[in-house]
C-alpha cells in the first residue's frame, strides 16, 4: 500500500477491488462512492480495477445449456417484441458507417453545450434521487468534461438490474447502462461523453421502463 495515501484513501482502497467486482455490501459501497466522487486518484484506481473485472469474467467456464434453452428464449424474446413494431431492416442493406453508428450506441454529435464550467462549479454536483417525493438515493456529477456520473440507491425497495437514462438539455435522451440493485441497494458509475452542464435530468428504471428513481439537475 502506498504510504503517501491519506487515511481516507487508504480505507477506500481496501474495498475498491470488491466494489469493482460488485460484491461489496451496500453501506460500504456508499462510502466508496462518496469518496471517489471527490478523489480523482481513487477514481482512476477504480476505473482500472473495473476494467480488470470485465476481463476476468471472460475466463468463466462455458457449459452446454439445457435442451430447449434456445427455443424457450426465442419464444420469450419474440413475444416481447411483437408489440414493438420495429422496422425490419436487412443487415446487408446497411452501410459500414451506419453499422458503426449503431454499434457505438450513442454518437454524440452537435452538442451545443460546450460552455466552460463557471469557476464555482469545480466540486461535484450532488442531488437526491427521489421516488414519489421520497429520497431513495444520491446522484453525483463530476466537474470535468467529459463528466462522470455516480449514483447510489439505498432505499428503492427493489432488486434486479436497473437501467440509467439521462436527458440532456434540448431533450436528447441517452441510455447510459445498467447496474445491479439488491434489496434496494445499488451503486454505479459511468462516464458520459458530454459536459455536466449538458445534463438536465436522469432516471433509473427497471427492465420494463418503470421509473424507480429520478433526479432533476436544473440549476
Amino acid at each position: 500500500m502506498n504510504a503517501s495515501l491519506g487515511r481516507e484513501c487508504a480505507g477506500v482502497r481496501d474495498d475498491l477491488s470488491e466494489f469493482a467486482l460488485g460484491i461489496l455490501a451496500g453501506r460500504d459501497r456508499s462510502r466508496v462512492l462518496d469518496h471517489v466522487a471527490t478523489c480523482p486518484s481513487c477514481r482512476g484506481e477504480l476505473e482500472s480495477l473495473a476494467a480488470l473485472a470485465d476481463s476476468l469474467v471472460e475466463l468463466a467456464p462455458s457449459a452446454e445449456a439445457p435442451v430447449g434453452f434456445e427455443s424457450r428464449l426465442l419464444e420469450r424474446y419474440h413475444s416481447q417484441h411483437r408489440h414493438r413494431q420495429r422496422p425490419k431492416v436487412r443487415l446487408l442493406a446497411l452501410t459500414g458507417a451506419a453499422l458503426l453508428l449503431v454499434a457505438s450506441g450513442f454518437a454524440l454529435g452537435g452538442l451545443s453545450s460546450r460552455r466552460p464550467d463557471s469557476p464555482s462549479s469545480a466540486a461535484p454536483l450532488s442531488a437526491n434521487l427521489t421516488s414519489q417525493g421520497r429520497n431513495v438515493g444520491q446522484f453525483w456529477v463530476s466537474s470535468e468534461t467529459p463528466a462522470w456520473i455516480y449514483m447510489s440507491l439505498d432505499d428503492a425497495n427493489w432488486s434486479g438490474t436497473a437501467w440509467c437514462r439521462v436527458t440532456l438539455r434540448g431533450g436528447r435522451i441517452l441510455d447510459v447502462g445498467a447496474f445491479s440493485v439488491n434489496h434496494g441497494y445499488g451503486a454505479w458509475a459511468a462516464r458520459l461523453d458530454v459536459a455536466r452542464t449538458a445534463l438536465a435530468s436522469a432516471q433509473v428504471t427497471d427492465g420494463s421502463g418503470r421509473v424507480l428513481a429520478s433526479v432533476s439537475l436544473s440549476t
Partner: peptide, 18 residues
Amino acid sequence: AQEAFLRILRHASVYDVR
C-alpha cells in the same frame, strides 16, 4: 441466462463499442 439475453437483446442499441 435467459433474463440476461433478453436484456442484452433489448438494449443492443445502447451497447457502446468504446
